[in-house]
Design a protein around this nucleic acid. Structure first.
Lengths: 110, 110
DNA sequence: TATTCGCGCAACCATATGGTTGTATATTAT
DNA sequence: ATAATATACAACCATATGGTTGCGCGAATA
């Protein structure tokens, strides 16, 4: 089933976004490519910890690495963000569906 | 800082949504209230496991419980979904900002 | 009344997560 | 050539997560 794979992707994307540091890395790298040490300078944790956060984002395909000399430039990829958004949109659509159902019931009572 | 609390809330919401079973529970409970055992009947896991999933959603304020007799009716609350969507919207807005910047650079080259 | 049903909770287990330090390697700068 | 920088990777640790089973309790039913 394709759905299984899609669900696993969504798992990874939402999991990756469930951390304030990683969301911040997304914001920084959405604006432009940044090296890992460039990122690490901004957070109160070790370089290796930031490296791990980047790895989590990369496995979720939220970010890609480009080798430039001894650096790895990290830049965000918006594709999976859109997928996650589509998932939330679907949930909100279901909610509106429920409201529409209630409206139907209410208008029948008139 | 209020931001800290908001970030922690987002952590919980994204974490809660990072599981296919919990996303499915959201879909079912967005359409209407369902008891925990009603939910549990649909998944290949124990009642207690489903109970825990519901607890994760509840702690993220994605769901609320209403006691009716011996049952707890679970229904989804769309508020936190909207917050999560706003977060993703912000990320996509940053991406468009980046594209706009590139456009500016490209048009200067003309 | 006795029993079954729905739920909450605790204990337990295996694995994942988020952090650390340390070591190795490739690239850049002195 | 040497030193410093940027990264990768492994080992380790504490805690969180996702599942299980078992027990107790209040509510519905026979």
């Amino acid at each position: 089933m394709v759905a299984r794979i899609a669900e696993a992707r969504l798992d990874r994307v939402f999991r990756a976004l469930a951390d304030a540091t990683r969301r911040d890395i997304m914001r920084r790298t959405l604006l432009g490519a940044v090296s890992i040490s460039g990122l690490a300078a901004d957070y109160d944790m070790s370089f290796a910890a930031v490296q791990k956060h980047v790895a989590v984002l990369a496995k979720a395909s939220l970010v890609r690495k480009a080798s430039v000399g001894r650096e790895r430039l990290i830049s965000a990829v918006p594709n999976e963000i859109a997928r996650a958004r589509a998932c939330l949109d679907e949930l909100e659509a279901l909610w509106r569906h429920r409201l529409a159902g209630l409206d139907a019931v209410l208008s029948e009572k008139k």
